[in-house]
Design a protein around this nucleic acid. Sequence first.
DNA 1: CGCGTCCTTGACACCAGTCAAGCGTTGTGG
DNA 2: CCACAACGCTTGACTGGTGTCAAGGACGCG
Lengths: 253, 253
Amino acid sequence: MPSPFILKLQHGAHLTDADRVRLEEVCAHTRQVGSRHDLIQEGDQPDGVHLILEGVACRYKMLQDGRRSIMALLLPGDFCDLHIAILGEMDHGIATISPCTVVRIARHTVEELTQHHAEITRALWWATLVDEAILREWLVSMGQRGADQRTAHLFCELLVRLQAVGLADANSYPLWLTQGELADVLALSIVHMNRTLQSLREANLIELDRRRLTIPDVERLKGFAGFTARYLHLAKPDRSAARGRSLNEAGVP
Amino acid sequence: MPSPFILKLQHGAHLTDADRVRLEEVCAHTRQVGSRHDLIQEGDQPDGVHLILEGVACRYKMLQDGRRSIMALLLPGDFCDLHIAILGEMDHGIATISPCTVVRIARHTVEELTQHHAEITRALWWATLVDEAILREWLVSMGQRGADQRTAHLFCELLVRLQAVGLADANSYPLWLTQGELADVLALSIVHMNRTLQSLREANLIELDRRRLTIPDVERLKGFAGFTARYLHLAKPDRSAARGRSLNEAGVP
DNA sequence: CGCGTCCTTGACACCAGTCAAGCGTTGTGG
DNA sequence: CCACAACGCTTGACTGGTGTCAAGGACGCG
């Protein structure tokens, strides 16, 4: 069974067998991290890139008053800090939620990948751009949808993203977040998060039992949430126009 | 006086004189667009890249019920769609707010830039990553700050971003948005946007007169908003570790 | 057993949305 | 030149979604 990392990147680029082999090599030396540990803290200037292979992590910022805002959920196959070599220092932290398997890829390895593997470079670009698209959709969600729709929307997104890496079946997946963490993601109070989940359960839109989320009727939940998967850009781009490009061209914005 | 575009990129990379000349060339053929016009619509697959040279534009999504969510404000020097060649099609639209001067840069020109100008490539990477950082901060703002703090935070951000391209003085700048547009940015109703502006005025945190925003005490407004400019990454990264890199390496994540 | 963590419930307060109405300025056509 | 419409701004009254405070229950773990 291929790594979720490769499964994910294949949604954004047409990897060759050689690309896949190279990526498997890169992910050879893994590391286990327990749940609720910082991988990177705000202000750090890490050298190299972290990649989640198993488990769930999050990007977060702490506010003056001690509240925590979670701005992204990192699933298997997601990069933590692909940008840091350019920006200089982290403007947010990254912490595990569940126990995680993590790879650290040295900077020179990333450079080698992007120099010699055009399609991998394209895939990395694609991954950051999808992260940005998710951020935009979360922003819309936060501003325009009420607590129940926002929650439903997140559950739809997680279903699709986990399916893309082979970690969800047709209508259910493991949900590692506590209600407190969900509240930090969705910017709700814990109390209201609890009530919102109850109301979704009562409406028979979701079932949530021992850390597993089941969606009895996926289309109904999507309809309720106003969810469309377009922003996840999981359909492979048409590459007919890209035939015969040189290496570097494929990595261009 | 140098173009705001070059002023902006210099915050993220060390451009040479040759880089600057090349960028000026690229921006030679401008186009005027009136206020409140679409530059790109959701679903478009534009070839090439749009760049704002003068004026203000925005990224937006329309919702089913007709509401509009503005997810980004594009100021002079900002790119509209640096990503589109990778993602395939736009998941949001871009519209002008004020009258704008816009450049369209052909795809092959971008490719030429990134192939032969390492520092420009780095600057383009930097620009997209800062866009992403702004998005994260807006997400925090949307979730955690009330209407008045959120508004104040936006005004602080605009001050710093406009100063970075030479378009704001020490404590004031032209604010082209109507209250209705501000409401779409901040996810408030028009009525509440109006009341929020009044309360900021009454607290003497801002003055707003004929499309010009003046901030009597910048530090006080920043304090009120919980604003720190760190996420804008305007300090140039330390490049001592990057000496002697080959062309492509500088463009690597 | 006792403690911590997570989940749950009720009462109450408040921020922000909605509805409705009116004002001022600008621009346009008769 | 005036009438009128369009647009942006402003105000008041009411509603409702969400936060806060407080308390308690269920479960796991040392």
